[in-house]
Amino acid sequence: MAEVLYDSPYEVHDPRFAKLINPGAKLERLATGFRWAEGPAYFPAQRRLIWSDIPNNRMMSWNEVDGSVAEFRNPSDNCNGHTIDRQGRLVSCSHLRRAVIRTEHDGSTTVIADSYQGGRLNSPNDVVEHSDGSIWFTDPSYGIDTDYEGARSDREQNGCHVYRVDAATGEVSRVADDFERPNGLAFSIDEKKLYIADSGRTHGEDLPHHIRVFDVVEGKTLKGGEVFAVCEPGFFDGFRLDEQGNIWTSAGDGVQCFAPDGTLIGKIKLPEGCANVCFGMLRNDRLFMTATTSVYAIYLLVRGHRTF
């Protein structure tokens, strides 16, 4: 059963945030005992939340119906971020396989991308789908830097970049090449913009810890890339948008919420640093948060933006 932690985990920085939160909702811990919980994704048809426990090389599952927690996949090839595509299939970023992989409805897996211009990818981290079916993903080097989250290996790419996989041809193209460690990413509601986190601070205090925003050109390329928001404390990792276009993002002190104009409007304080979030449940109004050793959840007064 879920463990109720405390009644009011909120910090309201702007009146707009007060309209998004439910003072009567409790912060709950659904599961604990993980090394690095990451990449939550909610399956509406299965009424199930899945997430990665990367160093333990497994994926976990929480059953909405009875609250039970079980292993979903073991070994998981050190999977990190996930998304559910518009056909209800799980798309995953595997550190160990250095690939983006799709789980088909029959349980088989398909490699979407594992190389670019003849060289293996570093270790895909997070992934989203565009409405045209193309897959966009970030490729930092966390899974090959050490053996903790994958397997220590040499880079075969000239840096840490962002890629797009064409739905019709499977062609992999590089869409951004000026990041230290590209991480979480999400499209705006109208898909005219793509937000991408740079978590470079993990490799130095003077390196980026912000989200950048790009213009999406004809659904295929990016331009711009100005800084949208800077993280304090820590660094941004994964994030999602709600139906109003607000960004709910992981941070060192929990979850931070930014309005579409880049204003920090509020926070959900957690007992440990957060890695990623997603929305789920019947009305898509519950925020699930993977935060280091545990998974937390809270009901909001705003629904998450559905992409399928």
Rank of each mutant, 00 (worst) to 15 (best):
P55Y: 10
W136D: 13
R164P: 05
G159V: 03
N122S: 13
S92P: 04
V69C: 05
I112E: 12
V162Y: 06
L121P: 07
A151W: 00
I135N: 08
S76P: 11
L90T: 10
V128P: 03
T103C: 09
S61R: 03
T146N: 07
S92R: 09
E149K: 03
H82L: 06
Q117C: 10
E156G: 12
S92F: 06
S131M: 01
E64Y: 00
E104Y: 12
R97H: 03
N57F: 01
E171Q: 14
R98L: 06
N183M: 07
V175Y: 11
H105R: 08
E64D: 01
G107N: 10
P55Q: 10
N80P: 09
A176Q: 15
Y148I: 15
C160V: 11
D77M: 03
Y148P: 03
L90M: 03
N125V: 04
N78D: 10
T138R: 07
R58E: 15
P55W: 01
W136F: 02
I84Y: 00
C160Y: 11
V172Y: 12
I112R: 09
T103Y: 13
S153K: 07
G159Q: 13
D126Y: 02
E149T: 01
S123V: 08
T83L: 01
S61A: 08
T110F: 13
P75T: 12
V165N: 14
E64G: 00
R73N: 06
P140K: 08
T146H: 03
A99K: 08
R73G: 02
I54Q: 00
S92W: 00
S123A: 13
D77H: 13
C93P: 03
D106E: 12
D114R: 12
G81V: 00
N125Q: 08
G184Q: 03
Y148S: 15
D178M: 10
D190P: 02
D132N: 15
D177Q: 14
R164L: 12
A168Q: 15
M59L: 14
S94F: 00
T103G: 07
Y142M: 04
N158R: 14
G119M: 10
A113C: 09
S52P: 02
A70F: 05
S141L: 09
H130W: 06
E129Q: 13
Q157K: 04
G143T: 03
G159E: 02
R120C: 09
T138H: 14
D154G: 10
G170R: 12
D126Q: 01
R164Y: 09
R98H: 10
Y148G: 04
G184V: 01
V91F: 11
S68E: 05
E156V: 01
D190T: 05
A151Q: 07
R102G: 04
I135W: 10
H130V: 06
N56A: 14
E104I: 04
H161Y: 15
E171A: 15
S115W: 05
N63M: 01
N78W: 03
N57A: 06
V128L: 00
G119F: 11
A186P: 00
G88N: 00
D178N: 15
N63G: 02
V165K: 14
G119A: 14
D77C: 14
A99Y: 11
